[in-house]
């Protein structure tokens, strides 16, 4: 039997023998990874929403009232000639009022209470997705602000950029918390491996005396940590999947309607692989550290 086969066989026996303490170790690492998985899933979905909003972000060019047609036409032509512009739609004052009344029927009285239509005509400029947020957009909006016939220019990506920064900060904080939890999980795995090492001290002494290679002496403990960590991460992915299924079933339609994406998304394959790989990695590292005294 190779050193690897021997290490797996011995580690499996040791985990079965450890019973409850191994289960506690798997549970602890699972909690850390459930937290990480929850953050990752939330992050994936928030990012999707942000990306969608960013893609649909547009520049609104509000026009002064009673703008001569030739000035409006010249402005529209100018906008359409810009390489970063994907589409331009003219929204007249009447159309803007109609939209308001359709979107906010309960506020119809407000719109009709004023003597004349308060909504300005505007050009709604859809940008090419790859250009959104780029320096050319800033240049375009700056140029439009001072142009004849333009009352105001609004680019709603700015608040999205701020929101993205807030989300990134939250993601970083979540990563730090998950890192601390994983460190704790690593210590738990190391403690279980140390217990196993203590229980097999006599065996280790004999292995050293018969001249067993170090891979045979330490290997089982490293593999034990690896298996505990990996099992914890797999449990965590399963729990996150269950939580996702429940959330998608009970909250999905409402939440999806609110955030504007078709449905919630589970962790991508990459995130799931990173989680499980991380579990194996944390476990193996803990096993390696804990088994140093077995040399």
């Amino acid at each position: 039997m190779t050193a690897l086969g021997y290490a797996f066989a011995e580690a499996w026996t040791s985990i079965r023998r450890a019973g409850r303490s191994a289960a506690v170790s798997i549970g602890t690492i699972a909690v850390a990874f459930i937290t990480l998985g929850g953050f990752l899933m939330a992050s994936v979905n928030v990012q999707r929403v942000l990306d969608r909003w960013l893609e649909s972000a547009e520049v609104s060019v509000y026009l002064v009232d009673e703008l001569p047609d030739e000035v409006r036409t010249a402005l529209e032509l100018h906008l359409r000639q810009q390489p970063i512009v994907a589409a331009v739609e003219f929204v007249s004052k009447e159309k803007a009022l109609a939209r308001f009344e359709a979107d906010f029927p309960e506020l119809q009285d407000v719109a009709t209470a004023v003597p004349q239509n308060p909504f300005p005509a505007a050009f709604e400029v859809r940008l090419r997705p790859e250009e959104a947020g780029g320096p050319d957009v800033d240049e375009l909006t700056a140029g439009l602000s001072g142009r004849d016939g333009v009352a105001d220019v609004r680019y709603d990506r700015r608040w999205l950029t701020r929101l993205t920064n807030v989300v990134r900060t939250a993601q970083l904080a979540a990563a730090v918390i998950a890192g601390v939890l994983m460190l704790g999980a690593g210590f738990t795995v190391a403690a279980v491996v140390r217990l196993s090492l203590h229980a097999r001290r006599g065996e280790i002494d004999i292995m050293q005396l018969v001249g067993a290679p170090f891979s045979y002496i330490r290997g089982p403990f490293i593999v034990e940590g690896l298996l505990l960590g990996g099992a914890g991460a797999i449990v965590a992915v399963a729990v996150v999947a269950l939580a996702y299924t429940a959330a998608a079933r009970w909250l999905g339609p409402d939440l999806a309607g609110f955030i504007g994406v078709a449905q919630l998304q589970f962790l991508g394959l990459r995130e799931a692989v990173v989680m499980v790989g991380g579990g194996f990695g944390v476990g193996a590292a803990a096993g390696t550290v804990a088994s140093r005294s077995a040399r």
Partner: peptide, 11 residues
């Protein structure tokens, strides 16, 4: 057999 096993001797 343990002494042989850990030395990687054929089964």
């Amino acid at each position: 057999s343990f002494a042989l096993r850990v030395l990687g001797t054929a089964v």
